[in-house]
Design a protein around this nucleic acid. Sequence first.
DNA 1: GGATGTGACTGGTCAGACCAGTGGACTAGG
DNA 2: CCTAGTCCACTGGTCTGACCAGTCACATCC
Lengths: 267, 267
Amino acid sequence: MGHEMAKSASQGSQLPSSGPRFQPVQPVRAYQRIVEQVEDALARGELAPGQRLPSERELVAQFAVSRSTVREALRVLESNGVVRSRPGDPNGPEILPFSQSALRKQVARLARVDEVTLSELIGFRMIMDGAAIQVASRLRTPEELDELEATLVAMRDAIDVDFDAFGEADLAFHELIARISRNSLIQTCNEVVRGVVLGLISDKIAHAPNSRALMLESLHHHAEVVDAIRAGNGHAAARIARQNMFDYYAGYVPDSEQETLRALIED
Amino acid sequence: MGHEMAKSASQGSQLPSSGPRFQPVQPVRAYQRIVEQVEDALARGELAPGQRLPSERELVAQFAVSRSTVREALRVLESNGVVRSRPGDPNGPEILPFSQSALRKQVARLARVDEVTLSELIGFRMIMDGAAIQVASRLRTPEELDELEATLVAMRDAIDVDFDAFGEADLAFHELIARISRNSLIQTCNEVVRGVVLGLISDKIAHAPNSRALMLESLHHHAEVVDAIRAGNGHAAARIARQNMFDYYAGYVPDSEQETLRALIED
DNA sequence: GGATGTGACTGGTCAGACCAGTGGACTAGG
DNA sequence: CCTAGTCCACTGGTCTGACCAGTCACATCC
């Protein structure tokens, strides 16, 4: 049957011109079909986070394939953050809630293959965070302004603890900004890229010399950002945020690329 | 042994306060160790796209595990877009160049689980594309301005072909913008989100009624964007781009969320 | 030289086995 | 009656060995 189809196609009427565009046929592996079925069930809502998949041996029966095939499908689903299997668990593999860890893994891979340089990542954050702050400064409610003030206090307190604490407080600030901008994608994007950046420079950042001065400087900048947001001056707020990001990270990128980043600061 | 460790930990000196923070210990599967080794080799540059991995049976010998384990590792690498194996290929699995398909898959999953709504995706594109255009209007060279003009001509020509052609021309425009902004992450981000959005509304967009009018309107907006870029007015260019994006996609989001999007248009 | 056939080897799948570990049911003790 | 402990069916992780269809390099033949 397949032969006949191929023949009639290649001998068909108007292939040389612009006939129906054929897709390159690629073999579909059995384990892929299993992955599809599970993901489809998840998309249709028949499977929800927290629920369990049948055990591997049960899946073998349902899908009518061997255990190797079922396991390969489960490994793929597991690496995509869809399920998690634990040995001995009689309830079977667990459907996981979404986590951005898989997303972060992909972006980190992007950076590792040198498709994306550190300066591009930082430039992206400057643009991204600036845009988020600009939006946030228009959408923010008075209550959210209070929350922003609160995170400033938390940052000031964290300076006296250690660098990690300050980093967490800083993260909280940016998460709040992303939340105020009413777009969870911005938040996810920021967190993912931030995670990748920190992963890339974590070895150098550990023994930063004058870290306290850096933190104070950063705090000062953040306070200025909040002031500008309070005044409703989104442009100024975004500009200060970009400036801060530049000051904070520029030291980690090669001199030749610093100019490119500096160009992003101005409005 | 495990018991003794647990005991000495729970009876240890200053656990109740803030001792050394322990990580939850999780079993490391053999196939994971293989994935790690391959990815590390890739990160260190010992493995480059285009090169080949040894055959499965050879890997069995090198890693000293069974073929099932090797295959599970290969399936994970394959699903992450790192390698591709073809049956019968005597050269073994191929190391792939980076592709954003895996990234797109993750974002699509984000959208399918309703963690992210269509209006958030579109809002993200409005913010993202606006920011890219703003940056591009400052960094663009005269030659790149010419290229932009050329894409406008291509879009006009595509209108007379069909909707798909126009979509491709539009994509080329946005890719060019992202390239001019000197940040491949913006480009990747835009393409990924664009792909997900189109995937979500492809069923409805197929039979758009007055598609020609829509395309002409869109082309007009794009021309205005280029005009503003030529004049060096980044703000205006970004605003027009957001307006265009809104007009183009707003019809696909629920009325209740349209207002949120409309708020993003203004500067 | 170019078409042709052949065989070593590839990945895809299967069946069956063993092990260490989990957790629910079941039981003995209060 | 409820609790504490034991036990065992069953789980996932790994291994072995096998078969098949397909691919590609090489040798062969015209």
